[in-house]
Each structure stands twice: as C-alpha cells, then as structure tokens.
Simulated scan of single mutants.
Amino acid sequence: MVSISFSFFSSCFPINSFLLFTSLLSAALIDAATITVTNNCSFTVWAAATPGGGQQLKQSQTWTLNPPENTTRGRIWARTGCNFNESGYGSCQTGDCNGLLECQTYGSPPNTLAEYALNQNNNLDFFDISLIYGFNVPMQFSSNSKLCTTDIQCIGDINEQCPGSLQAPGGCNNPCTVYNTNEYCCNSSSCEPTRYSRFFKDKCPDAYSYPKDDQTSTFTCPGGTNYKVVFCPTGSVLTNTITRNTTTTVSICQSNSTIIIPQAKITIVAPAFKSCNKQFYVSLSKQ
C-alpha cells in the first residue's frame, strides 16, 4: 500500500511542476512487464531475446523474461538447428546471433519475431509479430493478464508453401533479405505491398508482412501488462525443411503411433513398444 501526502504543495508551487511530479509518479507505479516464453514445438529450440540473452528450450519448457520498463525495440525469437559448446559458442541454422548462446545482437534471418516497446506514449505497450526478417517457426504473442486480452498469432505453414526464390534452410526468407531493393525493403517513404508481402499476409494476417504494414499489425495494451510468447502454438502447422540424407528420431509409446513427415509425404504406422525408451529411426534422402 502506498501512502502519499501532498500537503507540501502550496500556492507558490508551480502547477506545471506538480503535473510533472504526478506524471512521473504514475509512471513509477506501473510494474515492469514479465514475458513468459514457451516452446510448444515437438523439437528443441534455442530461445533468444534482446534484451534477455538466450536459453535452450526443449518441448514444453519455459523461460521468464523481465525486461526493463520503458524498453524499446525489444525482440524475442526462436533459433533452430543450433549446436553450442560448454562455453556458449556455436551456431544456429536460423536466427543465429553471432554464434552466441546468450544473444547480444539481433538474430540473422530467417526468423519469426516478437517485437515490443514498453510504457511508451500514454503509458501504452506496443507489440507485434513480424515477418520482415522471414519465418522459421509459428508464433503466438498475447497478453497474460486481466489488463488486456489481445492475442495475436502467426500459425500458417509458411515453410511448406514458401516461394522458391525465398526458400532457405530451416525457414522462409523475406524478399528484402534476398533482393535488397527499395521495392521490398522500403528504404524510402514510397513503398507498397508486393506479391511476396501478400503471401506472408495471407498466411499470417496479424503479422507485419513488409515495413509499412503498421495499420493491421501493431497492437497495444496498458503499461504493466504481462505477456506470453509461444513457439508452435496450438493449431499451428510446421513443415520442417528436409535436407539430403536426414535421419529423424521419433519416440514411440502408444499403440498404432503415427509418424507423419509432411514434406516427404511419408506416414508410418508402428506398433507400440512396452517401454517408451524405444526409438524408431527414419532415414530420408531427397532424390
């Protein structure tokens, strides 16, 4: 409980100073946001955040972030296909941040982004999902408190239907990354949707599809709202890129377990094992 007395204000105290004081007081009483990051994918991801660093997340694991209040240009994303040594150095197929487990810079494309700015104009938080740097995993970004009920997501299977020129190992590039022209990067004030941005917008209507896509892609909640970011949320579809001579390992426990590998168009129905320690190996090779 906070008890405040204003008896020290007198008629000689400038009114504009009083307004400034109350404005600062109001801002100080707003709690900093907590952001919970959850991996709902069937595979391990290496979550990354600026500010925040990075952490490996196996399926169903969570990571809690407490970014500073008034954070601007905050980002959260999933890295895939990573390999780090004990010192935290390595590389990732998507979303790599200069080979560090604890990210200090933004990730390299393609990567689906959760972006946010806290306690900005009128004490509002601004947040979005962005495909401006491409797509690697489906994502949900939503409020996690009674202050706000906004829920945005990108759950389309973009990797499966990615245009040929934008295809990348583990994901789908944005055309700016591939072509680096004003048409796609919007380096000037003149910029219109393109056939590629329409592809991304069709798959993920809530997400930024190109840099000038503000009107349908920026969302707000009151300052102090808590949030959650979920990789591969319920209802999402993700087809992983299968490279040559890929070996997939799947644990089989239940009777008549079905293993579906969409891009290879292979469905395997296997009998149950008495122990969940058994594993079934599928070797794939593109022709």
Rank of each mutant, 00 (worst) to 15 (best):
T50I: 08
A28N: 07
N240E: 15
D125N: 03
I152L: 05
A264G: 12
S23H: 07
L124A: 07
A264T: 13
T218E: 14
F219H: 02
R73I: 01
L124M: 07
T249I: 13
F84V: 12
G81H: 10
T267C: 02
L100H: 13
Q104N: 11
I261P: 05
Y208C: 03
W46A: 12
K146D: 11
T239K: 00
K265Y: 10
T34A: 13
I261R: 01
M139Q: 11
T94H: 00
T246E: 15
P67Y: 02
P175A: 13
M139W: 11
P205E: 09
G81R: 03
A28M: 10
V37P: 01
G53T: 00
C103M: 00
G107Y: 02
F200R: 07
V37T: 03
E69P: 12
L19P: 00
T225H: 13
E160V: 08
N180P: 05
S87T: 13
K274R: 09
T267F: 00
P175N: 10
I155K: 08
S7P: 04
G107M: 00
C176Y: 13
I155N: 04
E160D: 14
S42W: 10
I266K: 11
F84C: 12
N174F: 09
C185N: 09
W46S: 09
T72Q: 13
C148E: 04
W46P: 01
G74M: 03
I261L: 06
S91H: 04
C172I: 13
Y106W: 03
S11G: 15
N256F: 14
N174Q: 06
L19Y: 12
A272I: 06
R73Y: 15
I129N: 06
A33Y: 01
C253L: 14
I260D: 05
I30F: 14
F199L: 05
L24Y: 07
I4Y: 14
P138E: 00
L65P: 05
Q287G: 08
C176W: 14
Q167S: 13
I252K: 15
F43Q: 03
N85L: 05
P110N: 04
P109A: 06
D202C: 09
T94P: 03
G52M: 10
P169L: 08
G223E: 08
N277R: 10
N136S: 05
D151Y: 09
F127S: 07
T72S: 11
C276E: 14
T149E: 09
S17C: 15
F219C: 00
C221P: 02
Q167E: 12
F21G: 15
T225R: 12
C103W: 01
N66K: 08
N182G: 13
E192I: 06
S197N: 05
N226W: 04
S190M: 08
V37C: 04
C276P: 14
